[in-house]
Design a protein around this nucleic acid. Sequence first.
DNA 1: CAGTGAGCGAGCTTCCGCTTGACTT
Length: 781
Amino acid sequence: MAKNLLIVESPAKAKTIEKILGDDFEVKSCYGHIRDLEKVDMGIDINNNYKPSYIVPEEKQKVVKELKSLAKKSDEVWLATDEDREGEAISWHLCEVLGLDPKTTKRIVFHEITKPAIQSAVKSPRTVDMNLVNAQQARRILDRIVGFELSPVLWRKMSMRNNLSAGRVQSVAVRLIAEREREINAFTPASTFKVEAWFSAKDSNKKSVTFKAEGNKYPNAKGAEAFLNSCINAKYKVRDVQVKPARKSPAAPFTTSTLQQEASRKLGYSVSRTMVLAQKLYENGNITYMRTDSVNLSDTAMTDITKKITSQYGKEYVEVRKYKNKNESAQEAHEAIRPTAMERLTVEDADCRKLYELIWKRTMASQMADAELEKTIAKINISTNNEDLTAQGEVLKFEGFLKVYREDRDEEDLAEDDTDESMLPPLEVGQILDFKEMKATERFSRPAPRFTEASLVKKLEELGIGRPSTYAPTISTILKRGYVEKRDKEGVKRDFRILVLKSNKISSETSQETTGAEKSKLFPTDLGLVVTDFLKQYFDDIMDYGFTARIEEEFDEVAQGKMKWNKMIDDFYSPFKKDVDNTIETAERISGERELGTDAASGKPVIARMGRYGPMVQIGSQDDEEKPRFAKLKPTQSIETISLEEAMDLFRLPRNLGQFEGHDVTVSIGRFGPYIAHDKKFYSLAKELDPYSITLEEAIPIVVEKRAAKEQRTIKVFEKEKIQVLRGPYGPYIKQGLRNYKLTKEQQERSAEITLEEAKAIIEELKANPPKKSFRKKKAS
DNA sequence: CAGTGAGCGAGCTTCCGCTTGACTT
């Protein structure tokens, strides 16, 4: 038994540290937080200065028990949880649970897992910083209050009330997506005409090459045409050539959020996929910790990286750089994400390989020299008017870091008129150019693109909302709650005009482009939109983008001992609770109602609103003598944008197509998509078939075929007990409700003779002793 | 599996941030 027990948060870290510290230390992990607020009454005694009441959750009891017994046997317990607010709190909870005195128990920290860092940490232990712990308690309690007070308000005020939730982070994330959507819906594109001209000149090998020069933009076709007109019979002469050196610097090493962004842009990974793969790499010892907001690299890592750059590319490619975090909310308890050994160029595991190589390249590039460029800007004079054309070229003089890595840019950061900078042939002042043609092309302005998972993370991080460990879970939450959907959107075709000046003649042509297409983007649902509006109306302060930043300042004051945490919470809670009570009392139910127009047939109003089962349209009102008619919106339709025509179209279902074998054949859309109903049985409609236009002639063969297939599948039915004996791809089996029960070989062979009693017995038996699952390796999707 | 759309009210849900496996199809 080692004399010392040292506790860290992560088990992979524990293994590494144990090796470094040797036999005197047993290193164990507590797997993050070991206690949390109890759920009844929020786990907070409001009338007793917000006294929190903590419990060890079920899933943490095993590890707590183990740590307790180890702590008892050790001479000394060392707390080495992460060096941030949460880590400090974990250390304090450990004291509380293990019966250690926080005033004397040794607390050490390291933000890199290297031998020198750990050895020096052990030499200078401190004790738990209670101010920092209290800042964490304030953070925890505030989040609990916001979440557990707001969510019930939604349950009361929303007709769809299952599982709804609100919180400091998730509700603002949904707001970002909701507002972006409305911005896009409200956007009216403006067009301009951009002038470009093509010339040819001889390159250094005396070969003719074509290059492009750019002119002004004109707000309309008339202006552009007038300009082209003024260029008829013009001579084009190089008026000025400027050559300027330029540099490009590499990006900082990866943090969680920049890794998620680049893996999304370069590899198309979702943020959760990135994290799963990074976790694997970390557990295998290939990379440093993957949940970090720090861009810092340890000294040992720097040496390793520069050594690798020197041996692989040469000394001139090395440039040692220290990166600073731009983000104020960063807590920097860890290093940046980097390979643990630069010598390892790749990894075995095919799933992880691309992500590892991305991390390797980014890490290398971060300590490499700037790329050196030469930019050429040539001004071209037009003899017939006073305008200039500008040709720009770029030559790479020294690759530097670009040899290994180039960061991709987000759609939103791309300027609309980015010039493509390619090579220019050598040009001299006074040179007369050989004119090919000139075009004025109509270009439309674009709205901001919808968020991807990764660009949402980027935005949240900029606002200081959420932490590296929560970015991926937050996205899962808002998707799971149905506030947001991830999907594609087809673009629409749009005409644009091009005016061409060639051989001194101006002609006009029209071309087509696709606009508005989106792939794997986040769209708000109607539920997300109405909930956001509601929360904004009644809880404007919490929905404010600056709310987290503001309370973080107060947490900092608590951490510095300048403010008592209960006072801080009270300042927040008292007015907040008043808002909550007031909202419950006065707010109307959330409906998102919008009037679309009047139904021509009945003269009644047509409205779109949220119903108990989602967004719907309705003709007439509840107060009318006649019952109103209802129809559900299609998946991609929205209350905010649906037109009267589209709404009326929805009422065309269910359609009665006519009779077959003496029964009606009707077609409609149900919970599981379009279907045909006939003789009390239902048959799904294939995707390509449109329920609005399908005919009886087309429907009958579907009914006949599907019915036959169903009959073929059915061996026996015990209607009352809802038990069926069915034929599946692996032979006969029993189905009760939604669950399937496997039959033995012998039972399968006489499946037609199985009695109700026997079927019941089989079900009971299999429920009591579920068969062992076969182990199948999960395929990455 | 294929409906529903009002209100009442039992019993339930819910937050953010630390950590990994243990689960299922």
